[in-house]
Simulated scan of single mutants.
Amino acid sequence: MNKVLILTDSTADLSQGILIKHDIQSVPLYIRFDEEVYLDGIDITTEELYEKVIETGMLAKSSGLRSGDFLITFKKFISRGFDIVYIGVSSGLSGSVQAAELARNEIAQDRIFIVDSKNLSSGVGLLVLKAKDLRDQGFSAQEIKRKIDQMVPHVKTYFIIPDLTYLYMGNHISGAKNFFGKLLNTKPILTIKNGNVDIVKKVNGTIHQSMDYIVKTLDKDKDSLDHDYLMVTHSYATKSAKYLKDQIEEKYEIKNIIDSYAGCVISAHIGKGSIGIAYLTK
């Protein structure tokens, strides 16, 4: 049996430390400011992204990987004797999975296995970590894809957006909703449903009230909770992340609660102070 490579992209929001420790490869998506193009996490950091937003008055735009990007990576590792499992951001939000399929069809269909996570950020990261565990247990790439595909519908992801400005500037909400959202101090809680972003609830009040709502939502799944991993992901919301993590650690016995920082692609759409969790149910 060939060696197995677990491959993802920068939207999984897994730190460089985790990628290196667990021998996971990641390919960066693109960040654009007008005519300037950067590789997420390589040419530009999240801090630099926010600085450029202030300097230019423009929001960054993200774009998915191209089939040519995947061809380079696929050929590199196929030539080294690896079978590849690529787990990518939802096909409903990016063209990266479709680009990977095109590249796969050009070179080695029987050695490259592609999973549409139907999720983003730590929702992708969770599946990558589970795939890593399966690889370490000796499963083949084909078996890993089959098992991860079965997990996809069981990923739960919730994000709090404390400032609607980025959603407004990105044309995700109207100017009126942005104005009244600020006026009413609304903290929308978002989830991923059928591979697309959906609003779960609009919480009026503090960020802590929104986080408490997320913990209550998690509590509804306590009997079916997968205890291997839970990810707390944020964009410059360290205090909120600690509060949320402490609440979860107090109530649940989860082996690995991972504190994750949102990369440029995710941060470009949600803005500073946003925070969320991702977990799996059985």
Rank of each mutant, 00 (worst) to 15 (best):
S91A: 07
V89S: 02
I87N: 06
Q98I: 12
G138R: 01
F180A: 10
T217K: 12
R80A: 06
E250G: 04
F74M: 15
F82H: 06
A278M: 02
S91N: 07
Q98Y: 12
D116I: 02
A108C: 15
Y30K: 08
D83E: 15
Y213F: 11
Q109M: 15
S117T: 06
D110K: 15
I114T: 09
T11D: 11
Q137N: 01
S91I: 01
P188C: 09
A268P: 08
I72E: 14
K282M: 04
K242W: 00
L29E: 06
D226R: 00
M1G: 08
I44E: 09
Y158P: 03
R111L: 14
S121P: 11
S15A: 13
I31D: 05
E47H: 11
Y50E: 13
S235C: 15
N256V: 01
I20P: 06
K130R: 03
N178A: 15
G125K: 08
L19F: 05
R111K: 15
I42D: 04
L280C: 05
Y261Q: 14
K272L: 15
T46Q: 12
K216H: 02
Y168C: 08
I270V: 11
I248E: 08
Y38V: 09
F74K: 13
L184D: 02
K222L: 10
A141V: 02
T186F: 10
K182A: 12
T186A: 13
A268W: 03
L65I: 06
L29G: 06
D259E: 14
Y229D: 06
N171C: 13
Y50A: 14
N119G: 04
Y86M: 08
Q98M: 13
V215A: 07
K220L: 05
V197E: 00
A108V: 14
G81M: 02
T238Q: 09
S62C: 10
A99T: 01
S62E: 03
K177R: 14
Y279M: 10
G125V: 10
L29W: 03
D198N: 10
N2S: 15
S79M: 13
